[in-house]
Design a protein around this nucleic acid. Structure first.
Lengths: 146, 146
DNA sequence: CGCTAGTTGCAAACGATTTGCAATTGCATT
DNA sequence: AATGCAATTGCAAATCGTTTGCAACTAGCG
């Protein structure tokens, strides 16, 4: 059994170490997250979970997401409009470009931008705890020169 | 009668031109917005409005904000956690630094960052429609050198 | 295998925002 | 100034995403 492109962390181990019980619902949700490449919202996770175990409730999905978020295992994003979307925290830091037409989320990173952010905060007398950079755009059509 | 630091636009004129009726509730809300320097949420605007005219309803505040947003007269911000906060669109573009301890919002702008954003989007084959850059931080204490 | 605290599903509660509807009111027209 | 009608309002109820109280259930230590 091999693993996916991005680092797939052993959540169960992490959870156990944190003194959290590994229940059946949690195992199912964890598996789903580990196998996920996109940024699903709670309802999507709930549906994927339901197809594996009909008895899992939406509340449990929410509770588990909150738990994992608290542990730093996942990140919660509140993109414009829609419900919160989640992603594994395992990879390295990145920001998001959201396709306004499809809702697709593309990850990107810019050290330069981060540096500038720090610089700006410092000048204002602040220390950045975290930030949020989201670009909302549309695919450039072939004809769109200029 | 003179005007405040930032450009205070003549909303009534703008609205009339857009074929929108100037009602009493709207006039009150418009005055509040014109006199506002911060980033109030709907409830705050509602309260300020109520103190002028008890009959104004929260629904009307929401409806008016949506109307103004649609006209591009105000911007709606969904900062972490809390309810949407509004600000006049009159000034020039800027991003926000939110003080995690006080909730204060500080405006800043960086051409360099905007350029980098465009560049990144272009490389990914996208055209930015709008973006959202929020820094969440804490005041640096005097002793916090480095 | 039994015990107990941690977890669950359910339904109800929540906060922010939107909406249906009947009553009201701008305002263009006489 | 009086008329007419569509735009707008206040209210209450509805909506959406998310959280919570509670009694039943269960992981996993001993």
């Amino acid at each position: 059994m091999n693993h996916s492109p991005q680092t797939k962390p052993d959540y169960e181990r992490e959870l156990r170490r944190a003194g959290v019980r590994i229940t059946r619902p949690r195992r199912v949700i964890l598996d789903i997250l580990a196998a996920t490449e996109d940024h699903p919202d709670a309802m999507e996770i709930f549906q994927r979970a339901s197809s594996i175990d009909k008895s899992i409730s939406l509340s449990t999905v929410y509770r588990t997401m909150k738990l994992l978020e608290g542990m730093g295992a996942i990140h919660r994003h509140a993109f414009e409009g829609g419900p919160a979307r989640f992603e594994q925290a395992s990879g390295d830091h990145h920001d998001h470009l959201i396709d306004l037409d499809t809702g697709d989320v593309i990850e990107f990173h810019s050290n330069r931008i981060e540096e500038l952010q720090d610089e700006i905060a410092r000048e204002l007398g602040y220390e950045i705890v975290h930030h949020r950079l989201e670009l909302y755009g549309r695919r450039r059509k072939a004809g769109n020169r200029k």
